[in-house]
Amino acid sequence: MATRGFSGRGRTPSGQDRLPPGQYTTADFPVLSLGPTPRVSLDTWRFTLRVGPKPVKQWTWDEFNRLPMTGVTQDIHCVTKWSKYDTAWEGVSIDDLLADAGLDAPTPWVLAHSFDDYTTNVPFADLAGGRGMVALRYAGQPIDADHGGPARLLVPHLYFWKSAKWVNGLQFTQQDVAGFWELRGYHMYGDPWREQRYSGD
């Protein structure tokens, strides 16, 4: 249905093919979180890889920073409608993380965990092959706490709630387990190009 009087002055003709439906671009980096920004000390920071309930590998901050670092520059898309082009991240790819743990993906499903008890599910296929990382730096600097620092998951081809802030672990699960927002009406997969915002989309 066309809206009376609306012509749309926000469109950016050259960028339409890189802007998913219903999104608009912003130069800012808005912050969305469900609660207070957690106070995470690097001294006690740990990242844990689990298979089901069982921890199979844990890294301290120093150990994690000695893993191979990968840089990516990607567009990101938030379900609240903003998109930001060309965000530059540096971190440890999930491929390198699993290689360091000597682990082959035991199941196709991953649940990411965070220091604030946030969780979100991402299929392993969307983390492997260089598609996902645990990011430690944004735009050449350590990631601000507001934006998920010291470390956040980065899965830029899915809506950004999948890129869990303050991430402290990945867990392989026996089935696709809904995380925090997925339990509250948001889509299990979250592909911006198919506009999978809410369950049923």
Partner: peptide
């Protein structure tokens, strides 16, 4: 929201009881 949530934590309100919604951007 950042300022208020930090003050609440300092005043002893536990993080699990604080829910936030941030506008803007």
């Amino acid at each position: 929201v950042g300022t208020v949530a930090d003050l609440l934590l300092d005043l002893g309100v536990t993080a699990g009881r604080i829910r936030t919604e941030r506008f803007g951007g």
